[in-house]
Amino acid sequence: MMTSLFSIFDPSSSIFSFSLNWISTFLGMMFLPYLYWASPSRWVLGWSSLTKGLYNEFSVILGTRNLGLGLVFISLFTLIMFNNFLGLLPYVFTSSSHLVMTLSLAFPLWVSFMVFGWLNHTQHMFSHLVPQGTPSVLMPFMVLIETISNIIRPGTLAVRLAANMIAGHLLLSLLGNMGPALSFGVIWILISLQVLLLLLEAAVAVIQSYVFAILSSLYASEVN
């Protein structure tokens, strides 16, 4: 019996107390061998053009000195997008809907940016705490507000991704549970709504991974 509506997102498959659900995080690695065929497929060509476009966009944000970071954010985008898409498949655990995973991605990135910025660009980091043109009376309040907004950045990144993935999957689950109680004529309307929601969730899977990677790159650009 389901004790909570959100219990459908709980890890439940295990062998010898080892959770098997988190193995779904690495299912995206199964797609990598397709990139090394002698004759690239259309999927590989499309993925290459997508990564090149992302790399150019990250290069504009990060500048010419930090092009190596663009590869890091492309890898981050790839990991999140594969996990979001795999969560749409039946009986596949959606690891990106859990704060354990999203925080483990956002928090180390934020800490590394802060440590690098405060050690190498201390004056630049201090200047970010007080926006240009702030009156002297408001400076202490602006420092407090900017400090709080900077501290909560990894939390907002993690919660944004997890909440968006949970919301769509929860709506799909609620509509799916209505199926047995509906008549044969109405169930076709429900199936149509499920298909439309599935397409919407596929778009959300790409958008949220893009938003996570872009915001992370913007935070990285502020420490230089």
Results as ranks from 00 to 15, higher is better:
T3M: 13
L5N: 09
F6T: 06
S7R: 07
D10P: 03
D10A: 14
P11L: 01
S12V: 12
S14H: 09
S14K: 10
F16R: 12
F18S: 09
S19C: 04
L20K: 03
L20H: 02
L27Y: 08
M30N: 07
M30S: 12
F31P: 00
F31V: 10
F31S: 12
L32I: 14
L32E: 09
L35N: 13
Y36F: 15
A38L: 15
P40C: 06
W43V: 14
W43M: 15
V44C: 02
L45R: 13
G46E: 01
S48L: 12
L50W: 07
L50R: 07
T51S: 07
G53Q: 03
G53A: 08
V60E: 12
L62T: 00
G63K: 03
T64H: 14
L71E: 07
V72D: 04
T78S: 11
L79G: 02
L79W: 10
I80L: 13
M81Q: 09
N84F: 08
N84C: 10
N84T: 00
G87F: 00
L89N: 02
L89T: 01
T94R: 05
S96D: 02
S96A: 08
T102R: 05
T102H: 05
S104P: 02
F107C: 10
W110G: 01
G117V: 04
W118K: 15
N120C: 11
T122N: 13
T122A: 13
Q123G: 08
S127F: 08
H128A: 12
V130A: 04
P131S: 03
P135W: 06
V137F: 13
L138A: 15
L138I: 10
P140Y: 01
F141N: 15
M142K: 06
I145R: 09
I148R: 05
S149W: 13
S149M: 15
I151D: 02
I152V: 13
I152N: 04
I152C: 06
R153W: 13
L157R: 07
V159W: 15
V159N: 07
L161I: 09
M165P: 00
A167Q: 11
A167W: 12
G168V: 06
L170V: 04
L175I: 05
L175Y: 02
G176W: 03
G176N: 09
G179H: 12
A181L: 14
A181V: 05
G185A: 03
G185K: 01
G185P: 00
G185R: 01
V186L: 11
I189S: 10
I189W: 13
I191R: 11
I191V: 06
I191C: 06
V195T: 03
L200S: 08
E201R: 05
E201L: 09
A202W: 06
I207P: 02
Q208A: 06
Q208I: 03
V211D: 11
F212A: 01
A220E: 04
N224Q: 14
